[in-house]
Design a binder for these strands. Structure first.
Lengths: 336, 336
DNA sequence: CTGAAAGCGCTTACAG
DNA sequence: CTGAAAGCGCTTACAG
């Protein structure tokens, strides 16, 4: 590893001068700068981030919270992986690297963030059980944004769940459906996407004088396929005359299809389905799945921009920003 | 940010003593250690990794090369995302963090690795076009493993492609198929998985006296669904009497299914298919797709273990390690 | 058992 | 325009 001092020795200039030449700061003779740059190149010099960070107090590191306990698909999560992809790309374009913050017995998110001196944090998919940890994050003064749960004091950018639920209800009703099952998912005061979709669903019904029977609602106990299947089974046993179901996840829709196939329920002839997320798979089931697509790129870009602005000291709204989702009509819903 | 000096001042001990207490090194009075630890806790002390790295020359950072130009699914890649998940988990258990190495006009993999002082590098999914970059990595002396392409001087752990191709041929032939299309993918001297699968395929045929007609082979021009579809179209136009096709990727199989549906080809009645990767989707197409599953966890764990051993100075074999794949028989192949 | 000194590689005022 | 000095937060020999 060549250091700045090696270059100093080789060129006869002092370390500060080398530093200035390398960073393009200060006023140096063009000739000096050129000579130093050439020598640095020749000697294969690369700056050392640890030393630089120590001196400048800047690490160009963004901490990522990405834990997927509920769906357990890790980096293959249909929404959060897309957000992560784009977020990473965005911050890298500004010279930042990302680092994953972990949280276990020997290390908290906060401790990890402090250890690596990250300049900002994005909560892409947080362990819901760790509220207190996450709220703590909101307090330590380090810039933070969230693309998932809503945490006091942290700016959150998410898809418009209420509008999506509203749209689903509207669409199904327009197709003549009235006995509509709702397959929901775990959530709490922090992660509310499923609840909000139900809220929007009920809102449409209410506005249009259609009563909502709470026994048509079923909350699955995880975001996994099997949970969707199990949830649908419960729903179906209560209401075999149900004509449609809105699942808050494509994976649940898969579970429904699986159950339907095993029990001779024809889709969409006997049962229409709407999913959520537009997983790649939604385009290849049969029938192809009608679903909602969240604006992952929009969410990620906005989150990155706001976080970066926050880092350089610009004011950031501490509020909830909702981006529209896109309704994707395919073949899993029919008119009755 | 409380530093070691703050604790020194607060307790009356010197900085080195604080350091020893915090790290559990040296010989200190139990009483002293306890007092310091309590004070540190109370003051919310967290070590600073940049300062520590500078002093110890250890960063506990692993550089990840993960670029997916060919399939363009980023973190949702059916194989590499699974490897990344498990690899991350493995190294984190040993106290390491991962950081993604990027490679563009203003930064090479090598420069990025040097800047962040990573202690080791894993090439999970390298830009194939950047051979020279990757080979350079093999030379700079920093511990390196690969789970994808084969690079001179770098230990590589991959699935057993030859055996998989062999198995596919054997299975198809046992079901009576003789006119078998082979849908291959881009590759080169570095990334050879598709070629190797064809090699194994031909090997079985050769060993069993079945001639292989090269016009039944088609190389798609990316790993994407559309390329698979296009590739199959070419194949099908040459050989409408083909009874089966082996696609080196589930995504290609999806393309085949799409083409088949649009052209009234019944699957599996008129055309049997085998895919590769066991993407989630393979279990939900209709018919459900027969495919191969790579041992991503095994590959990742082995890669992590070898890399970590290499980092602490243990000898690591500079060779190619092949892990068996699992053949998953579902419903997309019939006997004829 | 504890501490004074030096150093890791870089940058930032401050002189000249 | 260039450099001497000090400091970022931590650790490692080395004394005592």
């Amino acid at each position: 590893m060549t250091t700045i001092y090696d270059i100093a020795k080789a060129t006869g200039f002092s370390a500060p001068t080398i530093s200035k030449a390398l960073n393009g700061t200060g006023h140096l003779l063009e000739k000096t700068r050129k000579l130093i740059l050439e020598k640095a190149q020749e000697m294969g010099y690369e700056p050392n981030s640890a030393a630089r960070s120590l001196a400048t107090k800047r690490t160009y590191l963004i901490g990522i919270i990405y834990d997927d306990p509920s769906m357990q698909r890790g980096f293959r999560h249909p929404l959060f992986a897309r957000i992560l992809n784009k977020f990473k790309e965005s911050v890298e374009n500004s010279g930042y690297d990302i680092i994953f913050l972990s949280c276990h017995t020997k290390l908290s998110y906060r401790a990890h963030a402090a250890f690596r001196s990250v300049e900002g944090i994005v909560i892409i998919n947080g362990e819901s059980v760790l509220h207190s940890e996450l709220e703590e994050l909101g307090k330590i003064g380090i810039p933070c944004v969230s693309t998932n749960g809503v945490i006091p004091g942290i700016c959150t950018i998410i898809g418009d769940n209420v509008a999506s639920g509203y749209k689903a209800a509207q669409y199904l009703v327009s197709k003549g459906h009235r006995k509509i099952g709702f397959l929901s998912a775990p959530g709490d005061d922090f992660i509310m996407s499923a609840q909000e979709r139900y809220e929007g669903f009920c809102k449409y019904m209410r506005e249009n004088g259609i009563s909502v029977d709470p026994t048509y609602f079923e909350k699955c106990d995880s975001w996994r396929v099997e949970s969707g299947k199990k949830g649908f089974e419960a729903l179906y046993k209560r209401h075999p005359d149900m004509t449609a179901v809105f699942a808050v996840s494509d994976l649940f829709a898969l579970g429904v299809m699986e159950y339907a196939e095993q029990h001779g329920i024809k889709i969409p002839e006997q049962l229409s389905i709407i999913g959520f997320d537009d997983d790649l798979i939604a385009n290849y089931t049969s029938p192809r799945l009608t679903t909602f697509r969240q604006d992952a790129d929009g969410i990620a870009t906005l989150a990155a921009d706001l976080l970066l602005e926050h880092i350089v000291g610009l004011p950031v709204p501490e509020k909830l920003i909702r981006l529209p989702t896109q309704f994707i009509e395919r073949d899993s819903v029919i008119s009755i």
